[in-house]
């Protein structure tokens, strides 16, 4: 297991390096970074000065070497928009996104287990049809629309919760609900079908013949066997959100997270900030995948990691 983790960490470093290289190449392929970052009105002298300042006048390999060296030291240059270190901006916004992920996706993960299981106990029953119906609704309603409806209902009409922004615990409730809904729908449907599969297996019959009570059959026997698949999908929900899908909720609720910052960096042609964001997200995704693999092995000892 230890050697496996070391090997996966090496692979992760390679992935991060590859992502960084791609970012480096793409930002120089799409056009001259100077033209992208400076306003149209900039003079030729200003352009040359800026190119020199960010090192664009040096050979490409030397630029890449410097870029990688700085990246290792988590230095991605200064954000043009914020006029401070890009990494500082990222580290300031990242906790907000993580908070939204934990409360939103976390809620979805916690609630989907009982909902999916209850639905699976009586397939085709009233409770099952209700949960499946709500699941389909949660899957098909666009997240931004759900967010707006939540604001209209709870903030505008009833005045219970703030419309947007960050600060008090009350601020996080509506964005979390909007964040949780599609994940909750997907994960509940997954738990339902996995549990249905599991409950029809022979070993469940054995457990029933042994006289085990239903709650034990479901929570001990069935749950243990769907856990690996469930954790994988939960991990993917976190990765989706990290990789940019949180931008919808962050924008609707003016939540100063990483997704929104990435959007703003794109709109403002802030290449250095964008590089820092992509780098951090890539590292997080690599780490989540590694954690998933390790949890997988712990949950199902039959899996041979090597």
């Amino acid at each position: 297991m230890g050697s496996y983790i070391v090997r996966r960490l090496w692979q992760g470093i390679l992935v991060v390096l590859a992502v960084t290289t791609i970012v480096f190449v793409v930002t120089r392929l799409v056009g001259n970074p100077v033209d992208i970052m400076l306003p149209l009105s900039a003079t030729t002298e200003q352009r040359a000065a800026f190119a020199h300042q960010i090192g664009l006048d040096r050979p490409i390999l030397e630029q890449f070497g410097t870029f990688v060296w700085d990246a290792i030291h988590l230095d991605f240059g200064d954000s043009l928009w914020q006029r401070r270190a890009a990494m500082e901006v990222v580290l300031e916004r990242l906790p907000n996104t993580l908070l939204l992920l934990v409360s939103g996706i976390g809620t979805a993960i916690v609630l989907s287990l009982p909902l999916g299981t209850i639905a699976a106990l009586r397939p085709g029953g009233i409770v099952d049809r209700l949960i499946v119906g709500l699941g389909l609704l949660g899957l098909s309603l666009p997240q931004f629309w759900v967010g707006l409806m939540l604001i209209i209902t709870f903030s505008v009409v009833f005045g219970l919760l703030p419309t947007s922004g960050i600060g008090t615990p009350a601020h996080i409730i509506l964005p979390s609900i909007a964040m949780a809904l599609p994940s909750l729908a997907r994960l509940s449907m997954l738990v339902r079908s996995a549990m249905l599969d599991e409950l029809n297996k022979q070993y469940i019959q054995t457990a029933r013949a042994k006289g085990m009570p239903l709650h034990r059959i479901v929570t001990v026997h069935g749950f243990r066997n769907i856990l690996a698949g469930f954790l994988t999908m939960s991990g993917w929900e976190v990765i989706y959100a990290l990789a940019g899908f949180s931008v919808v909720v962050e924008t609707v609720f003016a939540w100063p997270g990483l997704g929104q910052t990435a959007l703003q960096a794109i709109q403002r042609s802030d290449l250095f900030l964008l590089q820092a964001i992509v780098f951090c997200v890539a590292i997080l995704i690599v780490l989540i995948n590694l954690a998933l693999d390790i949890i997988y092995k712990l949950v199902d000892p039959r899996i041979d990691l090597n």
């Binding site: 297996k201 022979q202 070993y203 019959q205 054995t206 457990a207 029933r208 013949a209 042994k210 006289g211 085990m212 001990v220 026997h221 243990r224 066997n225 949950v299 199902d300 000892p301 039959r302």
Partner: peptide
């Protein structure tokens, strides 16, 4: 109350009759 205690059963296929993760 009695199933598993006074009344027990053995199934046909031992390969699938045990919980694989317990």
């Amino acid at each position: 109350k009695i199933r598993g205690r006074e009344l027990a059963m053995i199934f046909q296929n031992p390969m699938t009759s045990l919980n694989p993760l317990m």
